[in-house]
């Protein structure tokens, strides 16, 4: 396993298209857009070789899919927010890294494959993030999916494989995690001016999570992931995985400088733009009892061992 971090900094940002398509419908959307714009400049000045993006709005089933088309191009429309407009895109993908990431994932026991097809439907979250953070394709990118069945072990190993691939290629990366905090949206159409976090409970949890991010406590958040999933996540997938991947990719500790650039409602969900930068300082070193994992060994065939 690689011990040196090739991560310059990490970004956590929301998937919904309002900051890209309609930032002026609401001051909150504008604040999110400004935060993206700030990070765009910081990425440009960072000296990064690659932007590596994990998107919760790209679900996969057959293992972990990694975008490898060198110049994917299409015009995307969101399933819910189609009335906000279309999202034409053309990205520059580091195919060499995509293949290296796939290989690194397989070396750690994961099933993985690259996708490089004309017209492949890149997801809303990836398009929003790359369009705002890297609008001129100055830095090549790579996008990895979120397997809908995977849980903690698999996701952590997927993150460690990203570290392996970056180390092997000697590339400096900015990593981007695309995910909401609380993800419960309003189930009716609302006036943008009336947007707010869906409930005080969701808002309170979001603010507690933001406190952890602000203090650089990424590994603590990773250990709290199951609680977060139970409290403020719609149960669409097996678990709340983005902070597992983020911690495993950036380093499983609390030695980060955190900065909350914006926290706003996006149709009721919690949208935050956050930067985490590796540092030498640590806050809240805690010990947890969930084992770390280096290699994924697959399902344990629990069903097959019981008497049915």
């Amino acid at each position: 396993m690689s011990t040196e971090s090739n991560i310059l900094f990490g970004i956590y940002c929301p998937p919904h298209p309002h900051p890209l398509l309609a930032p002026d419908l609401n001051q909150g959307y504008r604040n999110l857009r400004s935060a993206y714009d700030t990070l765009k400049t910081r990425i440009e000045e960072s000296g990064a070789d690659i932007i590596l993006l994990y998107s919760t709005t790209w679900p996969s089933i057959v293992g972990h899919q990694i975008q490898a088309h060198p110049e994917p191009e299409w015009t995307h429309v969101d399933d819910d927010f189609h009335f906000l407009g279309s999202m034409p895109y053309k990205f520059k993908i580091d195919s060499e890294f995509s293949n290296a990431y796939k290989e690194a994932a397989e070396n750690r026991g994961l099933h993985s494959r690259t996708v490089a097809y004309e017209g492949f439907p890149i997801d809303t979250g990836s398009i929003v993030a790359l369009s705002l953070l890297n609008p001129d394709n100055k830095i090549p990118a790579c996008i990895v999916s979120s397997n809908m069945y995977s849980n903690r072990s698999e996701t952590i190993v997927l993150g460690k494989a990203a570290r392996d691939a970056l180390a092997k290629q000697g590339k400096k990366a900015v990593i981007v995690v695309v995910a909401s905090l609380s993800n419960r949206m309003f189930t009716e159409h609302i006036e943008p001016s009336e947007d707010r976090i869906h409930s005080p409970k969701d808002d309170e949890w979001n603010r507690k999570i933001l406190e952890f991010f602000d203090n650089g406590r990424l590994e603590d958040l990773s250990q709290l992931s199951r609680d977060i999933h139970g409290q403020i996540r719609i149960q669409k997938v097996a678990a709340y995985k983005p902070v597992w991947w983020m911690a495993a990719t950036m380093g499983q500790h609390n030695n980060y400088n955190g900065e909350i650039l914006a926290y706003e409602a996006l149709h009721g969900s919690g949208g935050a733009v956050i930067q985490l930068t590796p540092s030498d300082e640590s806050i809240g070193d805690k010990e947890f009892d969930e084992d770390d994992v280096e290699y994924y060994r697959g399902d344990r065939n629990v069903l097959g061992q019981g008497a049915l």
Partner: peptide, 22 residues
């Protein structure tokens, strides 16, 4: 997640690529 939507244009033609099984 925000209600039920209906297709509302007379025709569509394009390329559909399965995101799971491309």
């Amino acid at each position: 997640y925000i209600g039920t939507h209906f297709l509302g244009l007379p025709s569509f033609n394009s390329l559909s690529v399965d995101p799971i099984f491309p």
